[in-house]
Design a protein around this nucleic acid. Sequence first.
RNA 1: UCCACCGUAGCUCAAUUGGCAGAGCAGCCGGCUGUUAACCGGCUGGUUCCUGGUUCGAGUCCAGGCGGUGGAGCCA
Length: 447
Amino acid sequence: MPPIIKINDAKDHVGQVVTVRGWLKRKTGKGKINFLRVRDGSGIFQAVAFRPNLGDEKFAKVKSLTTESSIILTGEIKADERAPGVPGGYEMDIQEIEIVQLAEPYPIAPKEHGAEFLLDNRHLWLRSDRQWAIQRVRATVIRAIRDWLDEHDFLNVDTPILTPAAGEGTTTLFEIDYHGQPAYLAQTGQLYNEANIFAFGKVYCFGPTFRAEKSKTRRHLQEFWMVEPEIAFCHLDELLEIEEQFVSYIVQRTLAERANELKLLGRDTSKLENVTPPFPRLRYDDAVTMINEAAAAGVTVPPKDEPLTPIEWGDDFGAPHETYIASQFDRPVFVTHYPTAAKAFYMEPDPDRPEVCLSADLLAPEGYGEITGGSERMSEPEKLLAAIHAQGLPEEAFDWYLDLRKYGSAPHSGFGLGVERTVAWLTGVKNVREAIAFPRVLGRITP
RNA sequence: UCCACCGUAGCUCAAUUGGCAGAGCAGCCGGCUGUUAACCGGCUGGUUCCUGGUUCGAGUCCAGGCGGUGGAGCCA
């Protein structure tokens, strides 16, 4: 029996007769020759059926194949520059064919489809070249995240998804019934991370988070994955150094390990090769000045080339403002020292200027927006309690959180990185819903 | 919640001033020895989102509803 190989390994079997198990993506051909584009999950290659070699009976079997039929092919691997695929350049000269199942007419055609149709057929859409490549990039991003953190002494301590109270406010939580008691799906693990650092020093949690925001934009999901590192005895400047090392590692490792997938996606990787430390740092004050100067000069921003609108000090940036700022740099840029009033209650105010806080958002280039958000946390119990009151939050819900400031409080900092936004940026896809296998977007829960 | 746009074959779209509902792709049949979303010939395929209205006549105009896409706010 010939060995069963993965398409991705075809290059190691040139001249050998091997077996491949997979699915037919597409079939083209002429009277005596048929070309089968075959995928097996590891890669995509072409198998050639030539009637004089194969015989009429087996050739008729090949001709009967429908798109997405599951098949087992045996034949000789040949190197051929004309052979398309991923990685490409190798094809099989078919000698034997077994049809495992002849697929029914497949709804997804090799042409353009609308977003609604594709999302309705997400379970099938995942088989398409681009979606396959995106998910493989995602897996590498996730692995890079874990490897970097594990290798830099961060302990993975995961935080609960079922939670009793809001992390940042009650308006965007999914409420569920916890045995008769209201509970909420977590929108962040950060408060628990802050408990964990006092036990473990440096920690991260990594999992899905949930936001019931009525947001229907290409950057929003109801359920998305976030990694949140948190570090004890860490100030903002040290946090930024960690973040730029971390993000650069993720980008460079993806470039190294997923070159084929990025090529298939048509990604211009030259823009990603720039992503090395240090990243530029921009204070909120200076960002506002930049935006207002550009707005006065009539600068427009993609994707719709609408004019940039001026903003007032104290406003948070809109998506066009982020896009403009990011476009001024050749790698991700930190925007730091946002107005305290615009940010979450737990962020430490700047001791020299309490109206701004020790926060930092990292804006990805090319309009992909905020990929991390982080800050130094408030470490003094009195200040934290005052901030909770100022936000009108219920003090009793934060009893344990306040405890952390009573028993060996220390300066500490952390950030969250959104996996789907990062994957969308690296792959160049326009909408984050393509960066997760089964996206939960507003108004959709299936498939 | 608000704003804009859209809804016609399995899919992507067309249909002049309100006047016979059409094309490409997919599917099926046939042809073709190197195809890259092949090509050539033929066939099949319709609750024009729903309800009501105007009209001799509505895919087209009007009203209401439903659904979708993008954006705002908010965020990763």
